[in-house]
Design a protein around this nucleic acid. Structure first.
Lengths: 154, 154
DNA sequence: ATTGATGCAAAGCTTTTGCATGTTG
DNA sequence: CAACATGCAAAAGCTTTGCATCAAT
């Protein structure tokens, strides 16, 4: 893996935006890369026990502001973050979120965008942004699907 | 307005699911109708100062479980609730959320659903559910739009 | 009467803030 | 050395829980 290179890239991007390059930031960014596809702030806190929580929160906020990571909301409202510059440096996109392994795939679709545009025009609504999240099972989890068991709660 | 009738309808739906009909519930449901299009738990707390917060949280949860209200996530991750049975007793739908007046319109589209289906098939992803939220300005807020001012923060 | 519902206060979580100290440029 | 970053602890929100009391069936 060339996560080292990636970390350096992120650090320099932050630097260009006026943020200093610190060991702590390096550790946080390394951790984000090592966590792979998606992560929560708590993942970072767990993986970086020697850093203060406040620092982690502050840096996650910076990374989000710089659009280096993006925030994705899970089905239950919980939010996870994801590196936003691997697949798309500039482009708008959506997420396919696996409810089982929590992996996140991205996609975008011109068709979709124009469809949304026409829907909103029909309702004379002016879209600024939108968020679309698909929840389900990714290909590998789908393959290892056990027999369905239904549990009623309450 | 026939919100009275609506409240009674909700109460009886709850009753059918085994929840007792209480004055407190009646007050909460009335408040939801009077708040109109969408509301937060805090709106309810503000509007019902004589009820305990815990009770309000518990009942919102019940209403959500019974799918009488649905939870919508705003741009910033904050969640608001909305009556889910006015426009659609059964049908899946999406939201157009006005960032200015916070009103929420609903829509659905067969085209959209089939488009999503084909996207996910292309990525061999199995969709269970999805959430789509459009943020922008509704027709009335769009009309009263002031001249644009850009403010940089940070 | 029995079981569910409520209110209060306390506890839990997650995130933010103030401030003294350490580091970077 | 000036400005920024960090760590700690405290504070701030928001939501849940335990428990005694109250109300509905």
């Amino acid at each position: 893996m060339n996560n080292n290179v990636n970390s350096l890239y992120v650090l320099s991007a932050m630097n260009r935006s006026g943020y200093r390059t610190t060991t702590t930031r390096r550790k946080i960014i390394d951790a984000i890369f090592s966590l792979g596809n998606s992560f929560t702030v708590d993942d970072l806190i767990q993986n970086l026990p020697d850093l203060g929580r406040a620092t982690i929160f502050r840096n996650v906020k910076v990374l989000k502001d710089l659009q280096i990571i993006c925030q994705v909301f899970l089905d239950n409202g919980q939010s996870v973050y994801q590196l936003d510059f691997e697949l798309n440096l500039e482009s708008h996109h959506h997420h396919l979120i696996c409810s089982k392994c929590k992996c996140i795939q991205e996609f975008n679709s011109k068709e979709l965008e124009s469809l949304l545009q026409s829907v909103s025009e029909a309702m004379s609504f002016e879209i600024n942004t939108h968020r679309l999240e698909l929840y389900g099972h990714c290909s590998s989890c789908k393959a290892s699907e056990p027999v369905e068991v239904s549990v009623s709660d309450r």
